[in-house]
Design a protein around this nucleic acid. Structure first.
Length: 424
RNA sequence: GGAGACGUGGCCGAGUGGUCGAAGGCGCUCCCCUGCUAAGGGAGUAGGCGGUUUGUAGCCGUCUCGAGGGUUCGAAUCCCUUCGUCUCCGCCA
C-alpha cells in the first residue's frame, strides 16, 4: 500500500510510477478523497473538543452540587452530540474509501527495473553451470511414470486435474529435497525454521497483497478462511501489528509448506506434468529488514536460493524481471530459472522479491530505530528457496540415465540412503 | 461442542460511570550523589490521526484500556456482539 502523504508530497512521481506499472490510477483522484478526509477530521476534532469541555463542566458542576449549572450545560451539549456523531461517521467512511482505493494499487518499482511488456523482456543478470544436453531426453512425466512413482491419474481420481501422487522413492525424494533446503538455510544462512498454518484469515492475505485484488487465485473455505498460496503470507505476517526493536533485524525465516493455488488465469498453460499444480510444496525464505538493509538483503536472499541449485549441480540463470512481469507487491524481483533438458528450456524455479515497505504498511509492521521515538515501517522480502516440486522436475530431467533410472545428486544421497532411483 | 473465568501501557498490577491515557511496582533512558563489586535521590518512558512548524524536535487537539457496536452530557468502568486466553467436562491425532 502506498502512503498517501508520500503521494501528496510528490503526485507527479506517483503518477510516473503508475504509468510504468501500466496502471490507470492517478494521484489526483486519491488526493481529493484525502482532502475531504482531512477537512472532516479537523471539523470532527473541533466538535469533539467542544463536547468534551462541556462534559467536564457538567462533572465539575455535579461535584460542587450546582445542579442548575449542570442542567444548563447538558442542554447545551445536546445538539453538539448529533454533530459529533455525524462527523465521526463521515470521517470513518472517508478513511475507508481512501483505504479501499489504495489497496488495489500495485507497488512502485525500483528505477533499475527494466522496462518491458512481458517475460520476454526480462534481463539475464548471470548464468551458472552448463546446461546438460541429453540425447533423447525424456521429460519428468515420462520418467516418473515409467518408474511407477508419479501418478497423475490416481491424483485425478482423488482431486481432479493439476494434482499429483508421488510414491516410493519420489515421495521420499520430495522429503529429501525439502530437508536439504531447510538444513542449508537454517544451518548455513541463519534462517529460523518455522512451521506455520496453511489456513489463514483474510487479513494476512491483504497484508501481503493477495487480497483484495487476486481473490480468484486463492482457495477459500466455507469458514471464510483461505489456503495459503505461499508461506510468504504466514511468515511475513508474523510481524503484523508489531513494533520490533532494531536489534531484532534482520529477521530471517524459512518454512517448508504445502502451497495452494487456484490457477484461475492459467487454463491451458502447463497442463502436463508437475510444473503448475493446485497443490505443491515450497521452501520459502522471508526477511524482515530495516529500509537501509533491504537492498543488500535482496542480493543475499537471491544468492541463498542460487546456492541450492549450485549444490544440486543444476544449471540456472538469474533474471531481473521487467516492469511487465513483476508481481503486484514487489519493487524489484529476481527469478531463478533452472535448465530442464526434457523441455529444452529454462523454467522458473524461484522468485525473490524486495517489497520495500509496501506489505509492511498494509500489515502495520514496524520497528523502532535506536534512539528514535517514532517507529518506522520495516522492509519485507520473500523468495523461494526453492519450489520443491519444480526442483524434483529438474533433478529427474537433469539426472536421468539412459535406462530410465535417476542418479541421486550427491548432496541428497545421505538423505535418500541410496545413489540411484530405479523401478523396484 | 457444553459450563465458567478472564482480556488494562515493555512486563506485573490497581481502577466498576465524572477532569483516567490510566495509581503503584518492575524494567529501560537521562541526570545527581556516593568511591565500590551494592545502594540512594530526581526526571522521563505507548500508538494512530489532525493542526502548528523548515522539520520524523517541541507544542496543541482528538482517538485508542482485545475488537466492533450501543446506553449516557460523560465509559477502562454498564449493555450487546465478536475474537482470543485459561479451567473443568465431552470428543479426539
Amino acid at each position: 500500500m502506498h502512503d498517501i502523504r508520500v503521494i501528496k508530497d510528490d503526485p507527479a512521481a506517483f503518477d510516473a510510477a503508475m504509468v510504468r506499472r501500466g496502471s490507470e490510477v492517478r494521484a489526483s483522484s486519491l488526493l481529493s478523497i484525502d482532502a475531504q478526509r482531512v477537512a472532516t477530521v479537523k471539523a470532527m476534532n473541533d466538535a469533539q473538543a467542544e463536547q468534551k469541555a462541556i462534559s467536564k463542566r457538567i462533572g465539575a458542576a455535579k461535584a460542587s452540587g450546582d445542579e442548575a449549572a449542570a442542567q444548563a450545560a447538558m442542554a447545551e451539549v445536546g445538539a453538539l452530540k448529533d454533530r459529533v456523531k455525524e462527523l465521526e461517521d463521515e470521517e470513518r467512511a472517508l478513511a475507508a474509501q481512501l483505504h479501499n482505493a489504495l489497496l488495489p494499487i500495485p507497488n512502485a518499482m525500483d528505477d533499475d527495473v527494466p522496462t518491458g511488456a512481458d517475460e520476454n523482456d526480462n534481463v539475464e543478470v548471470r548464468r551458472w553451470g552448463d546446461p546438460r544436453t541429453i540425447p533423447d531426453a525424456k521429460d519428468h512425466v515420462d520418467l516418473g511414470e515409467a518408474l511407477g512413482m508419479m501418478d497423475f491419474e490416481g491424483a485425478a481420481k482423488l482431486s481432479g486435474a493439476r494434482f499429483v501422487v508421488l510414491k516410493s522413492d519420489l515421495a521420499k525424494l520430495e522429503r529429501a529435497i525439502a530437508t536439504f533446503m531447510l538444513n542449508l538455510h537454517t544451518e548455513e544462512f541463519g534462517y529460523q525454521e518455522v512451521m506455520p498454518p496453511v489456513l489463514v484469515n483474510a487479513d494476512p492475505l491483504v497484508g501481503t497483497g493477495q487480497l483484495p485484488k487476486f481473490e480468484e487465485d486463492a482457495f477459500k473455505t466455507t469458514e471464510g478462511q483461505y489456503l495459503t498460496p505461499t508461506a510468504e503470507v504466514t511468515l511475513t505476517n508474523l510481524v503484523r501489528e508489531e513494533i520490533l526493536s532494531e536489534e531484532e533485524l534482520p529477521k530471517r525465516m524459512t518454512a517448508w509448506t504445502q502451497c495452494f493455488r487456484a490457477e484461475a488465469g492459467s487454463a491451458g498453460r502447463d497442463t502436463r506434468g508437475m510444473i503448475r499444480m493446485h497443490q505443491f510444496s515450497k521452501v520459502e525464505l522471508v526477511s524482515i529488514t530495516t529500509p537501509e538493509a533491504s537492498k543488500d538483503e535482496h542480493e543475499r536472499m537471491t544468492s541463498c536460493a542460487e546456492e541450492v541449485l549450485k549444490r544440486l549441480d543444476l544449471a540456472f540463470r538469474t533474471m531481473l524481471l521487467c516492469t511487465g512481469d513483476i508481481g503486484f507487491a514487489s519493487a524489484r524481483t529476481y527469478d531463478l530459472e533452472v535448465w530442464l533438458p526434457g523441455q529444452g528450456q529454462y523454467r522458473e524455479i524461484s522468485s525473490c522479491s524486495n517489497c520495500h515497505a509496501f506489505q509492511a504498511r498494509r500489515m502495520n509492521g514496524r520497528y523502532r530505530k535506536e534512539g528514535q521515538k517514532k517507529p518506522d515501517f520495516v522492509h519485507t522480502l520473500n523468495g523461494s528457496g526453492l519450489a520443491v516440486g519444480r526442483t524434483m522436475v529438474a533433478i529427474l530431467e537433469n539426472y536421468q540415465q539412459a535406462d530410465g533410472s535417476i542418479a541421486v545428486p550427491d548432496v541428497l544421497k545421505p538423505l535418500m540412503g541410496k545413489d540411484r532411483i530405479e523401478r523396484g
